[in-house]
Amino acid sequence: MDAEKASAADTSFFELFQIEPSVDIHLPSLEATYHRLSLKLHPDCNTHADLKTRLHSLEQTAQLNRAYATLSNPQRRALYLLKIYGINLEDSQNPLQAPLSFLNHMLELREQLQQASLSRQTDKLENLERFATEAMEKKLELGCQCLRDGLGHGPPEKLQQAALHLVCVRYWQRFLEDVECFQEELSS
């Protein structure tokens, strides 16, 4: 994807926070901007305004909240950046496949997960959780590194690589969600 395409795409979340699209952002200043804008826009801070203003402020606040949720989370931020550069991983029409070896590994782990939950081994579940969390963080960092190299005028294949890493991150995330469901079942 070239820079032209990037600029034409929707960069509004970054614009809203008045920062350049980037993998690494300074979280405390992002938060400070979020608070400042919330105090200005939030309907609860505009109880004296007329109805139209408050409806408008509601729309804007919802958008601000979505932008902050996206930019403040490294994984969502990376996915959003990829989208800006033309790779939309949420597009189900055009799914990107994870490598076969990775999928095999996932299958194996899922079997372990099933067994651990059937035999009610909470410590086993915790080990799997820890393992998956670390693996996910590692993949995310790899993805972010490729993104850093590929953004702007970097080589386009870097973006493809980033996308592949992020697809794997999603597999890990779903795995962790399942671990949580099993943990919840065991706790009640």
């Binding site: 729309e59 606040t61 958008q63 909240n65 979505r66 949720a69």
Partner: peptide
């Protein structure tokens, strides 16, 4: 844990 008000 999405912040209110929220839209999607």
């Amino acid at each position: 844990n999405s912040t209110l008000p929220a839209k999607a």
